[in-house]
Amino acid sequence: MQDGLAFTGHGRDKLSEIGLELADLPPSNRPLCRSCLDWSQRRQHLAGRAGKAILDRVLALSWARRLPESRIISFDPEGERRFNGWLG
């Protein structure tokens, strides 16, 4: 936990829905979760091992893709629908 952030039981259940278990994340010096200000949009997002794991899973599920030679993540309409459904 950093920045006062922690996963609730509901949050852990939501991660399980997409095949992620916090206990299975590889060990690292990176914190499990922390907030990070996106410099381009000036909005907070989830960083740390959990944030990376969620992004990796979203990409693996083909809900989104990383634009070539960019940090931009692009959702197609179906992927956005599925991602929003998972969040809801």
Rank of each mutant, 00 (worst) to 15 (best):
K14L: 03
G48A: 08
A6V: 10
D3V: 08
L59K: 12
L59P: 09
M1E: 13
C33H: 00
P77W: 05
L22S: 08
S70M: 07
T8H: 07
M1A: 13
Q2N: 12
N84D: 13
Q2P: 10
C33T: 03
M1L: 12
D56F: 03
L37M: 13
H10M: 14
R30L: 10
G11I: 09
G11N: 10
Q41P: 08
L46R: 00
R66N: 06
R42W: 00
P31W: 01
W39Q: 15
R82F: 11
A6P: 07
G88Y: 05
L87T: 12
G11K: 02
S35Q: 09
G79Q: 04
R34I: 11
S62D: 09
S16I: 14
I73F: 01
A47M: 08
E17Q: 15
L37I: 13
R57V: 02
S28D: 00
L5T: 01
L46P: 08
I54N: 02
G88W: 07
R49N: 06
L46V: 14
I18T: 11
A50T: 07
R12G: 15
R12E: 15
D38H: 03
G4Q: 07
G48D: 04
D76N: 10
I54R: 04
C33P: 02
L61Q: 09
G85H: 08
F75S: 03
L15P: 04
D56C: 07
Q44E: 08
L25Q: 00
R43I: 08
T8L: 13
D24I: 01
P27N: 08
D56E: 10
D38A: 09
N29E: 05
N84R: 13
D13P: 08
D76H: 07
I72T: 15
S35E: 01
F83C: 11
K52I: 13
S70E: 04
F7G: 13
A6C: 11
S28A: 03
G4H: 11
H45D: 02
E17L: 10
R49A: 04
L15W: 03
W63T: 02
I54K: 05
S74A: 13
C36T: 09
A6Q: 09
E17M: 12
R30I: 10
L37W: 01
F7A: 15
N29F: 02
W86L: 13
N29I: 12
Q41L: 14
L87W: 04
R65W: 10
L25Y: 00
H45Q: 06
W63P: 04
Q44W: 03
A53I: 05
S28M: 01
R49L: 05
L87S: 09
S74C: 11
D38T: 06
R82L: 15
D3E: 01
D38P: 04
S70W: 02
N84T: 14
P27F: 00
A47V: 10
F75Y: 04
E80Q: 13
D56Q: 10
S16Y: 12
P27R: 07
S74T: 07
L22P: 08
